[in-house]
């Protein structure tokens, strides 16, 4: 371990502000996971910047004793891109929700992903608008009855992981708010990744959309439905790993290992340069209902925006020297009068 790195505890990352989410909200768990994780990460506290948009989750920066900005609805990826581009030494986190990132801010999200700016984007997906007290969101299931959809929502929902893979994000993962151990692993991999890391958290809003992820969280069903993706390992699930995922001609399919043999089971390759198989995996469930992949879908290397940005500046300076203002003013020709 680097001896220059300061030693932190979780308390070092807690601000003096009272945390004000509804009791029982999944946001509390994610906040605790992130604070604990940062205490162990080994990056100086002042190097962390948390940028959020608007929504319940976006209060997050106020509770972090780091640099932070609670900005405006949907724009956090754009603002965070400016922070990261201006100072590539910082570790920039984006805290957003399903409405913030996928509805009002959809454009900024996909462009940040495509540019591969060094941002860690944590999307808290609770499939509802919580701050405005219960309207359907772009990830709510069709037919959902809310205050703005009394007869059921007619909007077809986004699958955030599919969307991120479609935008060719270089790091795409999914985890569960209450699964702190898994969250810590995913955060560690995201922090390690250079470029944009996108993590979807299934986050329970116990007030307006309770039990949206019950099939993944209840003691009775979770082993049947959590499909953990581990790079280099066959994708198996079920209480006794009796099920597996096979990539067939029409996409990912669930098979019984005893019937098809272990060799037919897809070995997860998060480093696959093409996002196709990862995309197929992301299509396995919606809702989520039934077996649902969790873990790192994709983790590949691509040049990072800030490196290219700084690289061009260095190249220009190598060719022309660091700019001289007097020369610039004369660069299109001058004449002198006496």
């Amino acid at each position: 371990m680097n001896i220059d790195v300061k030693q932190y505890t979780r308390a070092d990352f807690q601000s003096n502000q009272e945390v004000r989410w509804c009791p029982g909200c999944g946001d509390y768990t994610i906040l605790a996971s992130v604070q604990t994780f940062l205490a162990e990460l080994g990056i100086d506290r002042e190097k962390h910047v948390f940028i959020s948009g608007i929504g319940c989750s976006s209060r997050f920066p106020y509770y972090m004793n780091t640099y932070g900005m609670h900005s405006i609805h949907g724009r956090a990826p754009a603002i965070a891109s400016g922070v990261a581009a201006a100072n590539p030494d910082l570790t920039v986190w984006v805290i957003t929700g399903d409405g913030d990132a996928l509805s009002i801010g959809g454009n900024h999200l996909i462009h940040a992903l495509r540019r591969n700016i060094n941002l860690k984007i944590l999307l808290f997906n609770n499939q509802i608008y919580g701050l405005t007290k219960g309207q359907y969101s772009p990830t709510s299931e069709q037919g959902k009855r809310t205050k703005t959809s009394p007869m059921g929502s007619i909007d077809y929902p986004f699958n955030p992981v599919s969307l991120a893979l479609g935008a060719e994000a270089t790091f795409v993962a999914r985890t569960l708010d209450m699964d702190r151990k898994h969250t810590a692993e995913i955060l560690a991999a995201a922090a390690e990744h250079r470029g944009t890391a996108f993590i979807e958290f299934y986050q329970n809003c116990n007030v307006f959309n309770d039990k949206a992820f019950i099939e993944l969280t209840s003691r009775e069903t979770r082993d049947d439905n959590r499909v953990y993706l581990d790079h280099g390992k066959p994708i198996l699930f079920g209480p006794d790993n009796e099920f597996g995922i096979r990539i067939g001609p029409t996409g990912a399919e669930i098979v019984e290992v005893s019937k098809v043999g272990i060799d037919s089971i897809q070995v997860h390759n998060a480093k696959d340069p093409e996002p196709g198989v990862a995309f197929a995996l992301s299509r396995l469930s919606r809702g989520p209902h039934g077996p649902t992949p969790l873990g790192i879908f994709r983790d590949v290397e691509r040049p990072v925006y800030e490196d290219l940005l700084v690289g061009q500046i260095e190249e220009a300076q190598a060719q022309k020297g660091t700019g001289d203002l007097a020369d610039l003013l004369r660069s299109t020709g001058t004449w002198t009068t006496n």
Binding site: A78, I79, A84, I313
Partner: peptide, 26 residues
């Protein structure tokens, strides 16, 4: 660029000013 200028061609007008606000914060 040799003046160290960073130009960020944003995805839209909002991201143009948004990125600038982020850069100002930084």
């Amino acid at each position: 660029k040799h003046f160290g200028v960073k130009t960020f061609q944003a995805e839209d007008e909002i991201a143009g000013v948004g990125s600038a606000v982020g850069a100002a914060f930084a």
